[in-house]
Amino acid sequence: MSRLQVVSGKGGTGKTTVSAALALALATEGKRTLLVEVEGRQGIAQLFETEALPYEERKIAVAPGGGEVYALQMFYKMGGAGRALKKLGAIDFATTVAPGLRDVLLTGKACEAVRRKDRSGRFVYDYVVMDAPPTGRVTRFLNVNDEVAGLARIGPIHNQAQAVMRVLKSRETAVHLVTLLEEMPVQETADGITELRAAKLPVGRIIVNMVRPTILDQADLDLAHAVPRTAVAKSLSGAGLGGARRGGLAERLVDPLLRQADEYAERFALEREQRGVLTELGLPLRELPLLAEGMDLAGLYELASELRQQGIS
């Protein structure tokens, strides 16, 4: 399977979480993965509950079966070279005046990590997982070296840019898109796939994140519309929730509970529709559950094992 796994998605879909879970999942059973964060928000450090990451490749987690996850945060507390660049104003330049340069550095670094070998000729990292920019920007981000190669038509710059693009456009790379079962993220996913394909970048999987459990199925929802209110009141009362008569607690609960069922039904229908849209995109789908108690390190391992079970290769 591809050794460079790029994870993108609309803002708010949890792509940092999915990247981290994927890095853990890929590291399982003795593999070594590098997780690269490009947005500079220290989201990975927070997820793994470690201190802010320096600009170096640092081991941040041990995967089940002995694998290791390393993480790299670019443009944050860089070492000597970074300080020199900073003094020159080059960081300011790269991050603001010509931000495309930043993308050049980031993609270049990730591809370098993919190709890096140790003295015995083995790859240093089995997999590199990149927490990439959001869907709206990811194609341009990954393609920045194509632009560079077009600008510098010969010479070392050209060659370097081409080498990076060769990795990014090969089967060594897979770009995954994280989405939610909501209209906007699904639309962005569809648009993103079109753009990636037009740029000849290899599209991997669609990962549906934060999938809510099915509590009421279609039969329940149909019944909720047909059932007499008194029957529900009686049932609530039978479960020990007060009187079913008019004004009793059970009776007063019926309307609010049925209203919540209506909202659920609306969402249920929307989710089904969006799942249909995603299925039509013809890419493998993976689904990760919404963790009821929010995201933490234990949850991350849970998502990683979920990914392994569903198959990540």
């Binding site: 070279a81 660049l85 080059a90 550095l105 270049g108 560079v148 510098a152 710059i157 370097q160």
Partner: peptide
Amino acid sequence: MMTGALGKLLGGQLLKDVQTF
């Protein structure tokens, strides 16, 4: 002077474009 520093990150890159710009 520049390639020394930038090179540590990436290898001398793109300076021509920057300068032109």
